[in-house]
Amino acid sequence: MPAYVPADHGAAWESIAPTEAGFDGARLDAAVAFAQSHDSPWPRSLFYPDGRYVGNVEWNESGPWSEIVGPVRERGGPAGLVLKGGRIVVEWGDTSRADMTFSIAKSYLSVLTGLAVQDGLIRDLDDAVGKTVSGPFFASDHNAGITWRHLLQQSSEWQGEIFEKSDQVDHNRQIGPGADNSRKGQRRELKTPGSFYEYNDVRVNLLGYCLLQRFRKPLPEVLRERIMGPIGASADWEWQGYENSFVEIDGQRMQSVPGGGHWGGGLFIGARDHARFGLLMARKGEWDGRSLLSADWIAQMVSPSPTLPNYGYLWWLNRGASTKAGVPASAFWALGAGTNVILVDPEHDLVAVLRWIDGASYDGFLTALYGALR
């Protein structure tokens, strides 16, 4: 008998009492209260009173590539839910509100890449991308050897400009608590593709463009048809590109979509839809007896990268120096600025979605959540 999955959006999503799900109810309530009381420090409008976009402030960004070119919408407050066995154990805030989700979109790109592999559109991750994606982006000697795996592991060291954003904008970028971005945007000497990790949104946007070229149809359509529709997600989510990211493919005008909201745009989605997506990952790509994404791809997707042990294919892993105490080594998560999280813990059949928690408090929430598990 297939494991429980929620009915399509609009129907009741079964809940389960904390004690029945293996939680201490009082401690779980405390974890939720912690999340609710540690709102993101970002302004609700996502713009500061002086007109600066939060991303430009967060990443110390100014200059020729800092222009906001995609839509930006006011955010909601803290929200989230915890699933055990696919059922809702606890839920707080507005979990249906379709908010910006920043770099969680990268993990959705990883899933789309898996579909492209399943479909034979990408024959081998170690193939040079330029073999099947025509145009100028892989014409140089340096870029010619970049593979799909390099793009997925953020080790491509691709050099160039796409949609008027240069790879240099994220040179020397750091992320996470204590990040020092005082040198961000300063040009550095590039290394051999595949040898060096750098969190670089321009290069991830390049991956989105390359997937569009392989699918020959807008990525939001592919995601809706292959993943979000079958898992019963709402119709409220959308994936927005930039005002200048339209391309022509087979005579049709299509918008290439980014892997985040660095310059606006990206994935606008609610916590409940994220939870469905996370549950699909926890269930190794199966939904109600149907395989939507291969279990082999998910295993590859969450395997450590050679250049960063706590990073897979655009998913964060509980490995290396950043290991979260009390959380299984098999757990992984999608992470977006602001802070937004989809935590997937297959070992406990647990999924947790967090919207708009102070990033410095994420570990505190995990400690409280896992401290509530019996």
Rank of each mutant, 00 (worst) to 15 (best):
V5I: 10
H9I: 03
A17W: 08
T19S: 15
E20V: 11
A30P: 00
Q36D: 07
Q36F: 11
S37H: 11
D39Q: 07
D39H: 12
S40T: 15
S45K: 10
L46R: 14
L46Y: 04
Y48R: 11
Y48E: 05
D50V: 07
G51I: 08
R52P: 00
N56C: 02
N60G: 09
E61M: 15
W65K: 00
I68A: 11
G70S: 05
P71C: 00
R73T: 14
R75P: 07
V82H: 05
V82F: 13
L83T: 10
R87H: 00
V90Y: 02
E91T: 05
G93A: 09
F102R: 14
F102I: 10
A116Q: 06
V117Q: 01
I122Y: 01
R123F: 01
R123G: 14
K131I: 07
P136L: 10
I162P: 01
S166W: 03
Q168A: 13
D170L: 06
G176S: 03
G178M: 09
N181F: 14
G185I: 08
R188P: 02
D201L: 13
R203G: 12
V204G: 04
N205Y: 09
N205G: 15
G208R: 09
L211G: 05
R214F: 14
P218S: 04
E221R: 13
G229T: 06
I231Y: 00
S234T: 11
W237H: 09
Q240G: 04
N244M: 02
I249E: 04
G251Y: 00
R253T: 10
R253Q: 07
M254S: 04
P258Q: 04
P258W: 02
G264R: 03
G265S: 09
F268K: 06
R272K: 09
R276C: 03
L279A: 08
L280H: 04
A282N: 08
G285D: 09
E286D: 13
L293T: 07
I298C: 02
A299M: 03
S303V: 06
P328G: 01
S330Q: 14
A334Q: 05
I342C: 09
L343G: 07
A352L: 10
D358E: 15
G364A: 05
G364H: 06
A368G: 07
L373Y: 05
L373D: 02
